[in-house]
């Protein structure tokens, strides 16, 4: 739905990521969770990244941001605004032009009040006001800002995490599962904000399991399986029985939703164990 002409913002090509592990003593081995990942995001476009758990969706996000653990071995090319995204550039851009909403609520500082965490990186003079505004927008009470992360529920923490990503001058938003555990009203507010990012010309990578929500706002959907991109389809192809989807895996993923034929996956196994 990008009104502007398609200008690629982020191009990930043949990305592969491995981890070297120590087995015993100095014996090493390398595991390769991501083998052949390809994703392209244009300016003003929302690309949903879906796929099995453990297929490497979060790793893709971490690779683009340059926050993989130190034993990771990365190859392939990541191009941002037509230029290779080097580790140094990643450091300069992340938290500024590239904003990240992490998957785990563990990423919040457990010893810092959540209001103060949202104010990080905002203009000091208006930070407090801005934070209160964001809280109101995501259906959080202003008194919630004085609480510590452990005092908030899972869904509330998600919304706090989301509020930390809303900054001026953001060009690329990488949202890793921003929606689980959030009730429908707050969810639609978050989707609206992601849509707004795109309207303002930013690219959005929305990593999610929540296909129904993602399809409401996404332009295209990339399907990841076992560390490789198996399909990139227009979001409109996800409807009915999925006859417009290209691969068998994507069709199964679509049909397994509780809204569709959840039961198809139910096999009559003997579970007397």
């Amino acid at each position: 739905m990008s009104k502007t002409e398609k200008k690629p913002l982020l191009q990930v090509e043949n990305l592969s990521i491995g981890f070297s592990q120590y087995m015993k003593g100095t014996q090493k081995r390398v595991i390769q969770p991501i083998a052949d990942m390809n994703v392209e995001i244009n300016e003003g476009e929302i690309v949903a990244v879906v796929g099995a758990s453990g297929s490497g969706k979060s790793l893709l996000a971490h690779a683009v941001l340059g926050i993989l653990p130190s034993n990771a071995i990365c190859s392939g090319s990541v191009v941002y605004k037509g230029e290779e995204l080097t580790e140094k550039r990643k450091r300069q851009l992340r938290g500024r032009e590239i904003s990240f909403i992490p998957q785990s609520v563990n990423y919040l500082d457990p010893l810092m009040r959540v209001g103060a965490q949202v104010q990080i990186g905002l203009d000091k003079k208006t930070a407090h006001k801005q934070q209160e505004k964001l809280f109101a927008q995501y259906d959080l009470k202003s008194s919630d800002g004085h609480l510590f992360p452990y005092e908030l529920s899972g869904g509330m923490l998600r919304r706090v995490l989301f509020a930390t990503s809303v900054r001026e001058g953001v060009r690329l938003v990488i949202a890793d599962e921003p929606t689980p555990g959030i009730h429908p009203e707050a969810l639609s507010e978050i989707l609206k904000q992601l849509k707004q990012f795109a309207k303002d010309g930013a690219g959005v990578m929305l990593i999610t399991h929540d296909m129904m929500s993602a399809l409401q706002i996404a332009d295209r959907v990339a399907v990841i399986k076992e560390g490789a991109t198996v399909e990139i389809s227009e979001a409109v192809a996800f409807q009915g029985t999925g006859e417009r989807l290209k691969t068998e895996y994507t069709k199964r993923l679509w049909r397994a939703l509780p809204q569709n034929d959840f039961d198809l996956e139910f096999k009559g196994r003997d579970l007397n164990i």
């Binding site: 099995a52 399991h209 296909m211 509780p258 996956e265």
Partner: peptide, 18 residues
């Protein structure tokens, strides 16, 4: 909530079966 649709259906199947 952290799982994809296929895994979700499979896990509930096994879990509720047991």
């Amino acid at each position: 909530t952290m799982l994809d649709a296929i895994t979700q259906a499979k896990i509930w199947n096994s879990f509720l079966g047991i």
